[in-house]
């Protein structure tokens, strides 16, 4: 392995500082005893306590969680179905158009997505609230899911599904018993991606949320406009730690599984040879 030169070390430090310094500062100030955000007055966890007393924040967190779970589940179902059709179905008229269209929301500015959904809901006369946010989040998260799932399906050996049919499965039970368990990791990561996207979305949510439903990002954004409070820092720190635990846990589990698979294969090869 190459030694680290001074240049590499500097690039690495600067790169990581650029990415993480703002978050580190946020985390540090969440433990600030002072009410003034920029003045350090000793260590304290009181803002975390106050956060738990703040009913408005707790309500927003609950709405966000509901929206996240519902939207990402819906998006996973629809996205997986879309991926199946786009990968499996051979040529049909408009196939290229469809596969192009599934990717379009990835590059569409969120403002446009949000605005168009708002206009749709108004023209249909739908009352805006939790339900409309769920629909909106499903719409934009679904294409991310379908991208993740279809990249797995491309490498899926289709003879596995044929084998299931051959052994007496109906097409649906072949999917349920063979395809789904095998592509499950991709479906789960699609769900997690959709959940994360829904969790931190501000733009689309603010277009489609009504007075009755406020998500956490909307709440934080409007609170910050009145001035940054240490409570917000504490809230953000909690969110960062949840995400960090999730990401580290997933990557560790994936690595473990890969290592175990490799070990088993080597053992089988040795036993045969």
């Amino acid at each position: 392995m190459r030694r680290l030169s001074w240049f590499n070390v500097t690039s690495l430090t600067l790169g990581f500082a650029f990415l993480y310094l703002p978050m580190v500062i946020l985390v540090i100030y969440s433990f600030n005893a002072s009410k003034l955000v920029t003045v350090w007055a000793g260590f304290s966890t009181k803002w975390y306590g106050e956060l738990l007393q703040n009913q408005a924040f707790l309500d927003a967190a609950w709405v966000t969680l509901k929206v996240g779970v519902a939207a990402s589940t819906l998006a996973t179902v629809l996205g997986t179905m879309a991926a199946l059709v786009l990968v499996r179905a051979g040529r049909f008229p408009g196939r290229t158009l469809f596969s192009g269209m599934i990717y379009a929301p990835l590059v569409m500015p969120e403002v446009i997505t949000g605005l168009s959904l708002l206009l749709l809901f108004i023209s249909l006369g739908v009352d805006r609230g939790v339900f409309t946010i769920i629909l909106a989040h499903t719409t934009f998260a679904m294409c991310y899911v379908s991208v993740v799932v279809s990249s797995r399906l491309v490498t899926f050996d289709q003879s596995l599904e044929e084998a299931a049919l051959d052994l007496g499965c109906s097409p649906f039970s072949a999917f349920r018993l063979v395809t789904l368990p095998i592509i499950a990791p991709a479906v789960i990561s699609g769900w997690l991606l959709a959940f994360t996207l829904s969790l931190d979305d501000l733009v689309i949510a603010s277009f489609t949320a009504g007075p009755s439903a406020t998500t956490l990002p909307i709440k934080i954004f409007s609170a910050v406009r009145l001035g940054v409070s240490p409570e917000i820092n504490a809230l953000c720190t909690i969110m960062i730690s949840i995400v960090a635990v999730g990401v580290i846990g997933t990557s560790l589990a994936t690595k473990r599984a890969a290592q175990r698979q490799k070990r088993d294969e080597q053992a089988a090869a040795r036993a045969a040879g």
Binding site: D157, S159, L160, E162, A163, A164, D166, L167, V178
Partner: peptide, 20 residues
């Protein structure tokens, strides 16, 4: 007659064993 309703079974070239 679909594959699942035939009294025919197939051994695939790739074996197609269910990995899970």
């Amino acid at each position: 007659v679909p594959p699942n309703e035939r009294e025919v079974n197939m051994m695939f070239q790739s074996y197609a064993l269910f990995p899970h």
